[in-house]
Nucleic acid binder design. Structure first.
Lengths: 192, 192
DNA sequence: TTAGTTAACACCTATGTGAAAATC
DNA sequence: TCGATTTTCACATAGGTGTTAACT
């Protein structure tokens, strides 16, 4: 996992990620360094997002508290295939593998846009996971579904609660401080 | 070939395409409608650019004239693999296949960025070609090189002369009139 | 000088931000 | 009323234009 210090800062305050109808990028975004692959073998790399628990969460009195059972399993795609897939082990190991364009949405109708967006439910806690799947010739496997040849990695620091508006002001401030697109909201007193 | 009327307008004045060190998009850009493919077979789609003749060209007295022999064959990549490759016949036929992000350069050093840019020589006339290659399992063939299973298409309306600065003012005006990114140079007398 | 190339520039498209107001 | 969601907005990043002036 790259950019671990930044993820840790957010995790300490319980990371929140905005979800919108048209899709919102994650910040921080997922980025990994891969090693130990066969340089000449072919792999597909993807990320999925799974529920951490079966509860609603609510932000009350400055804290996140569990609040009743989650609805039954929800429809919608939760798998995002890396745009470079499929590719060689050498390609994946040459530089960091980033998911900066992955988008989160609460729009169940967006499931049609296969692999474009990950569909989540607001106020639920999620864990992103990385899957590295060796693609054997003749198996195709471009749908990205984990197969018997898949290695899966999950980093607790990347857990987050999906929200439609930020709840914790500390999280909002961290986003403003570190996301270049939110620079317009920074206080420019003693920066630079 | 999509947007045929626009290509024809440029072709009537002898299309010019700017090439730069860091790479310049084509305008108009190549876009095709494919049909007759096997929906479940896999294909790679790519564009290459070949010399139309072996001459330098010079713009003199308002006309393009041939001018001496071209140098021997030049190095540099002239093949651009469509980012969606490889993919199913159904995918390619579902909607137009566009090459809007293809870039032209005169930087021979850019050959390293495999498949990112097409390297051309200024003041030479070129013909873009479309290649549709069936990818058989086990052949990989992701380098995009035309294989025995390839269909090739070339449209004379898409011929152009590579330049580092526009020579014909008619071409400049057509670019300004139709390329959204050049809107800043339009005369806004009676538009809208 | 001349012709071709390069780099800096203003202006544009396109899209990612959180804030705030409107809506559900 | 209240909490959650959606829409609109000013402000940012990122990068595609031809023009112009400098360079070779």
């Amino acid at each position: 996992l790259n950019n671990y210090p930044l993820w840790a800062k957010f995790h300490k305050h319980q990371t929140e990620m905005i979800i919108t109808k048209q899709g919102r990028r994650m910040f921080p975004f997922l980025s990994f360094n891969l090693s130990g692959l066969n340089p000449v073998a072919h792999y597909s790399v993807c990320v999925d997002v799974v529920l951490v628990d079966q509860h609603h969460w609510r932000y009350q009195g400055g804290k996140w508290v569990q609040c009743g059972k989650a609805e039954g399993n929800m429809p919608g795609n939760r798998l995002y295939l890396h745009p470079d897939s499929p590719n060689t082990g050498a390609h994946w190991m040459r530089q960091e593998v980033s998911f900066g364009k992955l988008k989160l949405t609460n729009n169940k109708g967006a499931s049609n846009n296969v692999g474009q967006m990950i569909v989540l439910q607001s106020l639920h806690k999620y864990q992103p996971r990385l899957h590295v799947t060796e693609v054997k010739e003749g198996e195709v496997g471009e749908d990205g579904h984990p197969s018997p040849h898949t290695h899966t990695f999950a980093f607790p620091e990347t857990q987050f609660i999906a929200v439609t508006a930020y709840q914790n002001a500390d999280i909002t401030q961290l986003k403003i401080d570190h996301n270049p697109f939110a620079k317009g909201f920074r206080d420019n007193f003693d920066s630079m």
